[in-house]
């Protein structure tokens, strides 16, 4: 499962993580600037989350396809749980939600495991999306029906359908390219780097807000700085992908732009529901959706682009 390139990738990421942890530790210890404290804490908690991600990721890759299907399946399940928790639902939705959690979600991941592309790419948008309103209608409560149905569909779309395209990358068969797990690795690497670069650039140089009502922390300076740096890194990692150097630049640009839009969209949802993080309301539990928002948008598009042009 581990070819030379994958091992090199892992080594680089490990190096980056050790580097980030040391810097974080150093800053925490020696920084006297109180204003920077929340920024340092934020970076440190991100680093911690990345360590976890990296370890779980390596384990998932070591066990081959099944490992990443299970890993992302659990991620989807927990993300959906956060989404539904903050979304109003009525008693009449109870049975629908049971289906969504325990039947539709596992089926979607099973379809990816058995590599049935034709069905997994339409299972949720066609079958589940028709089933959900029908099941809720059977419960006989039509109050706010459209709103309730749309919310469940959105939760399923974002948390399950979109995220499931990440492990689906492993099913792609690309000529002269051995281990498609590297595609997944590449996606997560670029998305995470873009997130953190945007955060750092925003903190350092952020002046002009992009959408102050939706996400006060997103600035043009952060956006441009973050995207540019992530694209530069993405370009130099082209050797881990089936792309040429130029194509890698284009691909990482698309990934980062979509990641940005994902973050913005999820911020709107949070804002609308009156919360700051999917995690803050539920201490020690939430935050999966906060970490996955950029992956949600980039994974399906990246999957289809790679599938169409390279496999």
């Amino acid at each position: 499962m581990f070819d030379q390139d994958t091992i090199l990738l892992l080594k680089i990421v490990l190096g980056l993580l050790i580097f980030a942890s040391l810097i974080g530790l150093g800053l925490k210890k020696f920084s006297t600037n109180e204003k920077l404290e929340p920024v340092i804490d934020n970076l440190n908690s991100r680093t911690k989350a990345w360590w976890m991600m990296c370890i779980i990721f390596a384990l998932a890759l070591a066990t081959g396809g099944i490992g990443s299907v299970i890993l992302f399946g659990i991620t989807s399940f927990l993300a959906l749980r956060e989404f539904i928790t903050i979304t109003p639902s009525k008693k009449a939705d109870h049975k629908t939600l049971f289906w969504v959690f325990f039947i539709i979600t596992p089926i979607q991941y099973y379809l990816i495991y058995i590599d049935w592309y034709g069905l997994f790419s339409i299972f949720i948008p066609v079958y589940a999306f028709l089933y959900i309103p029908a099941r809720s209608a059977l419960s006989g409560d039509s109050e706010n029906f459209l709103e309730r149905t749309a919310k469940i569909q959105w939760g399923l779309m974002i948390s399950v359908y979109c995220i499931s395209h990440a492990p689906a990358l492993l099913t792609l068969k690309i000529p002269n390219y051995d281990n498609p797990a590297k595609l997944l690795f590449y996606l997560v690497l670029i998305v995470q780097l873009s997130d953190v670069f945007q955060y750092v650039f925003g903190k350092l140089f952020g002046r002009h807000k992009i959408a102050p009502k939706v996400s006060p922390n997103k600035t043009w300076e952060g956006f441009i700085g973050g995207v540019t740096s992530a694209v530069i890194v993405g370009t130099f990692f082209y050797w881990a992908t089936p792309f040429s150097m130029l194509e890698a630049a284009g691909m990482s640009l698309i990934i980062t732009l979509l990641g940005f839009l994902g973050g913005l969209t999820m911020s709107s949802i949070k804002r609308d529901q009156g919360i700051k993080d999917f995690g803050t309301m539920i201490e020690g539990h939430g935050g999966i959706l906060d970490r996955m928002d950029s992956i949600c948008f980039s994974a399906p598009i990246y999957f289809h682009l790679v599938r169409y042009f390279y496999s």
């Binding site: 928790t85 008693k91 109870h94 049975k95 939600l97 049971f98 959690f101 539920i282 539990h285």
Partner: peptide, 20 residues
């Protein structure tokens, strides 16, 4: 908070919604 959504009155299947 929120437990009635996990298992409402009259239902026997639970759903994993977060509570506090």
């Amino acid at each position: 908070d929120n437990l009635s959504r996990v298992l409402p009155k009259g239902e026997f299947l639970f759903i994993p919604i977060l509570t506090r």
